Simulated assay, not measured.
Amino acid sequence: MASRADNIASSLSLANFSKATELKNRIWFTVGALIVFRFLSFVPLPGVNPLILESLYSKTQGGILDLFNTFSGGSLSRMSLIALGVMPYITASIVVQLAASLHPALMALKKEGEAGRKKLNQYTRYGTVGLCALQGWFLAVSLEAYGASSGLQAVVDPGIMFRVGAVVSLVGGTMFLLWLGEQITSRGIGNGVSLIIMAGIVAQMPKFASNLGQAYSAGDTGSILIVSLIALIIGMILLICFMERAQRRLLIQYPKRATQRGMMQADRSHLPLKLNTAGVIPPIFASSLLLLPLTITQFAGNSLNPESTMGKI
């Protein structure tokens, strides 16, 4: 279902863009909301030492935390208020959608139309709060355990107050992102949650370009490899956009109608069906499952060898 902003943009030419006041207001609102998201990614979690956290994150790169950090725009490595990002909401959405296909009561809600959809969205938000609280608690406990095993205090004042404060801050940050995404969807352009994820990924591009330039300056990477990598990224973006916008049009033919003046010609129309109805949720969920064993192995290795962790620091 196309949004109001999409309908306005589809019937608008570049020559008349200056007259489209509503579309410009929606664009500026979206840009402002994404700027607020980027500012929040630099607000640190109360009671943590960011220098120690940087050394902790450098030892767990390549796992599921690296994926979460990419989607949150580097917030997890800085342990900001929105360190969890919107991943708990995505996980809760997957669980509710699967439950709606298996549980009879939820399946009945799904068939009730708009009222059932609102009820399922409410259950998704409840699940998001529960997942945020659980993940925030384990994250706070892990930070305290890391400081105790490595000899470096990652938490300034460990204890129950720090854990409760971390859980409240992380839950509030994630729920604020969901509210911000809903505002973008209703008052901006596009899907708010998807735009927040995209902004987090795009925010990592300057760092990627800087590392690529440093590797080229040091002679570790050749110019042919860099050009091939850039061409591959552009090709992937074009392919993803093509598949995202692809539609399969089902022909709908209406029968002839009899009127006082005679038979009327049959009308023809089409029903556009999106080719990729699932969106980006299945790849994200599959990537999380594939990287989960690697993350568990990394944390198990660090907890079993605290001396080696101190040597690396």
Score class of each variant (00 low, 15 high):
117 R>I: 02
125 R>H: 02
117 R>Y: 00
133 A>R: 09
85 G>M: 06
151 G>C: 11
159 G>P: 03
121 N>Y: 01
149 S>N: 09
109 L>E: 14
100 A>C: 11
86 V>D: 06
152 L>R: 15
95 V>G: 05
63 G>Y: 07
113 G>T: 04
152 L>G: 01
142 S>Q: 15
69 N>F: 07
99 A>F: 12
131 L>C: 04
107 M>L: 10
94 I>G: 05
101 S>C: 09
95 V>S: 07
155 V>N: 05
75 S>D: 01
78 R>Q: 08
167 V>D: 02
145 A>N: 14
140 A>Q: 09
153 Q>I: 06
94 I>Q: 05
68 F>E: 02
79 M>P: 02
92 A>V: 03
145 A>G: 13
149 S>G: 04
67 L>E: 02
135 Q>E: 12
137 W>A: 14
84 L>A: 02
95 V>F: 07
169 S>N: 07
147 G>N: 02
116 G>K: 13
73 G>T: 08
92 A>R: 07
78 R>A: 03
127 G>P: 02
64 I>P: 05
116 G>Q: 10
114 E>S: 11
66 D>F: 09
70 T>C: 05
90 I>A: 01
107 M>R: 14
88 P>A: 05
57 Y>V: 01
124 T>C: 12
138 F>D: 11
140 A>M: 11
168 V>Y: 03
159 G>T: 02
94 I>R: 08
77 S>A: 09
68 F>H: 04
88 P>M: 07
158 P>E: 00
115 A>T: 13
89 Y>V: 05
90 I>F: 01
165 G>Y: 09
113 G>L: 08
103 H>R: 11
131 L>I: 11
91 T>P: 01
96 V>T: 08
96 V>K: 07
111 K>L: 14
84 L>D: 04
103 H>K: 10
100 A>Q: 14
113 G>Y: 05
118 K>P: 02
137 W>R: 11
156 V>L: 13
73 G>S: 09
167 V>P: 03
137 W>Y: 15
132 C>T: 06
83 A>C: 10
167 V>E: 00
121 N>G: 11
90 I>L: 08
60 T>P: 01
72 S>N: 10
105 A>I: 13
90 I>S: 06
128 T>R: 06
59 K>E: 03
97 Q>A: 04
91 T>M: 14
140 A>W: 06
78 R>M: 01
156 V>F: 08
84 L>V: 06
153 Q>Y: 01
114 E>G: 05
125 R>W: 03
103 H>D: 14
